[in-house]
Simulated assay, not measured.
Amino acid sequence: MGTSIALWQVIVLTIYSMYQIMDELTLQTSLSQPVWAGLIAGLVMGDVKT
């Protein structure tokens, strides 16, 4: 278990999760769908396949 999460990854995922919460409460765009959440998290973490 030698992998670690960089600070920028934590910040980007936190901002995206805040956007998702606001989206569900007000905006209603399609970026809060689970498929988009997985894609964005995979891109940030560097492992889209997983």
Rank of each mutant, 00 (worst) to 15 (best):
Gln33His: 14
Trp8Ala: 04
Met45His: 01
Ile11Cys: 01
Gln28Thr: 08
Ile5Lys: 04
Ser4Met: 04
Ser32Pro: 04
Leu27Lys: 04
Gly42Pro: 07
Ala37Met: 14
Leu7Arg: 06
Met45Glu: 01
Leu43Gln: 03
Leu13Cys: 09
Leu39Asn: 03
Gly2Cys: 04
Gln9His: 03
Ala6Glu: 13
Val10Phe: 03
Ile11Asp: 01
Ile40Ser: 02
Leu7Asn: 03
Val48Pro: 05
Ala41Pro: 01
Tyr16Lys: 03
Ser17Glu: 13
Met18Phe: 12
Thr3Tyr: 09
Trp36Ile: 15
Ile15Glu: 02
Thr50Lys: 12
Gly46Ile: 12
Leu27Ala: 08
Val48Gly: 00
Lys49Thr: 10
Met22Ala: 13
Thr14Arg: 01
Ser4Ala: 09
Ala6Leu: 12
Ile5Tyr: 03
Asp23Lys: 04
Thr26Asp: 00
Val48Lys: 03
Trp36Leu: 15
Thr14Phe: 10
Ile40Asn: 01
Thr3Phe: 11
Ile40Cys: 05
Gly42Trp: 05
Tyr19His: 06
Gly38Thr: 09
Thr26Ser: 02
Ser32Gln: 13
Ile21His: 02
Trp36Ala: 12
Lys49Arg: 10
Leu7Lys: 07
Trp36Phe: 15
Gly42Phe: 07
Gly2Val: 11
Val44Tyr: 02
Gln33Asn: 13
Gln28Asp: 14
Asp47Phe: 05
Gly46Pro: 01
Ala41Asp: 01
Tyr16Pro: 00
Thr26Asn: 02
Ile15Ser: 02
Thr26Phe: 10
Asp23Cys: 11
Gly42Met: 11
Met45Asp: 00
Ala41Met: 11
Gly38Trp: 10
Met22Trp: 12
Ser32His: 12
Gly2Gln: 09
Ala41Lys: 05
Leu13Met: 15
Val44Thr: 11
Met18Pro: 00
Trp8His: 06
Met18Gly: 07
Asp23Ala: 13
Ser17Asn: 09
Ile11Lys: 02
Val44His: 01
Ala37Cys: 11
Thr3Arg: 09
Tyr19Ile: 15
Leu7Val: 11
Leu13Ala: 09
Ile15Asn: 00
Ile5Ala: 05
Met18Trp: 04
Val35Ile: 15
Ser4Tyr: 02
Met22Leu: 14
Gln9Thr: 08
Met1Tyr: 08
